[in-house]
Amino acid sequence: MAVPPAKNLQQASSPNEEIEQFDPSAPPPFKVADIRAAIPDHCWVKNPWRSLSYVLRDILVISSLVTFAVFFKNITWVWPVYWVAQGTMFWAIFVLGHDCGHGSFSDNINLNSMVGHILHSSILVPYHGWRISHRTHHQNHGHVENDESWVPLTEKTYKTLNTVIKILRFKIPFPLFLYPLYLWTRHPRKSRSHFHPYSDMFSPNERPYIVISALCWALMVANLIYLSTIVGPTMLLAFHTM
């Protein structure tokens, strides 16, 4: 599909001049409907059996990695390899739950909710709480005031940051390690918890969903506590949370 030229971009005599004349604050020269129309129809078909096969595949890989770590647990170098590999697979589990939240996993809302709760709760993410805040993120992507998770900084604010903060936030980036804190409290001065049904992020009709997800999350925590009494807290930490 041909995309029409930006209206705010005048004829330029050189590439550099074209960049200088481009106004990033202007609306894009296309609509979301144009993008959707350019995507082939088969890309919109949701196959729940294929989606579930991905879940089964990832569970098998995760189980294999656990078995590998148990068998070679006395070898020091095994653990760093396990943490990297299993962390990657936990991210894969998160992505599948993410697709459930978007409704791209299947056309069945109940199936999406059930699988999403199982997957996200297993990695200690409240499914509905995250799903709703993530929807807000997509509706306001890149908006300085209204974006939910990836809030861009203004140039004025960025210039006030010291070098250490710039490195931790934009080079490492350190905020990725603060994800549990993000789930508990999104904003220091507002009620922005993904677990609280009366959080500012949720409407009154969404509160029952938040309660359900928080209960599923608590059930997973209780299960991990029980497992720690069997294998020990240190071993559980090594297997699950690292």
Score class of each variant (00 low, 15 high):
P4I: 05
P5H: 11
P5G: 10
L9Y: 05
Q10M: 07
Q10H: 08
A12G: 11
A12T: 04
S13R: 14
S13Q: 14
S13Y: 01
N16G: 14
F22E: 07
F22W: 14
D23F: 05
D23T: 06
P24F: 06
P24T: 07
A26S: 15
P29L: 03
P29K: 01
P29I: 03
V32C: 00
A33L: 09
A33C: 01
I35G: 04
A37L: 01
A38H: 02
I39A: 08
P40V: 09
P40I: 07
D41A: 15
H42S: 13
H42A: 11
C43I: 03
K46I: 05
K46N: 02
N47M: 01
L52N: 04
S53C: 05
R57G: 01
D58W: 09
I59E: 13
V61D: 06
I62Y: 09
I62L: 13
S63F: 04
S64P: 00
V66T: 09
V70S: 09
F72G: 00
W79A: 07
P80Q: 05
V81K: 02
V81W: 12
V81S: 11
W83Y: 09
V84E: 03
V84G: 02
T88K: 07
W91D: 09
I93R: 14
L96Q: 15
L96C: 03
H98C: 06
G101L: 05
H102F: 08
S104R: 07
D107H: 11
N108T: 10
L111H: 01
N112L: 09
M114F: 15
H117K: 12
I118Q: 10
L119V: 05
L119R: 02
H120I: 00
H120K: 04
S121K: 06
S121L: 09
P126S: 03
P126Y: 02
G129S: 02
H137S: 02
G142S: 02
G142W: 04
V144N: 03
N146D: 15
D147P: 06
E148R: 11
T154V: 02
Y158P: 00
L161G: 02
V164P: 00
V164F: 12
I165F: 03
L168W: 02
L168E: 08
L168K: 05
P173W: 07
P175Q: 07
L176G: 00
F177C: 03
Y179N: 07
W184R: 13
H187S: 13
P188A: 04
S193L: 05
H194Q: 12
F195Q: 04
H196P: 00
P197V: 07
P197I: 06
P197R: 06
Y198A: 12
S199A: 06
S199Q: 04
M201D: 15
S203T: 13
N205K: 13
P208N: 06
M220L: 03
V221H: 00
V221N: 00
S228D: 08
V231R: 04
G232N: 07
P233L: 11
T234A: 12
T234W: 12
M235Y: 10
M235I: 11
H240Y: 14
H240M: 14
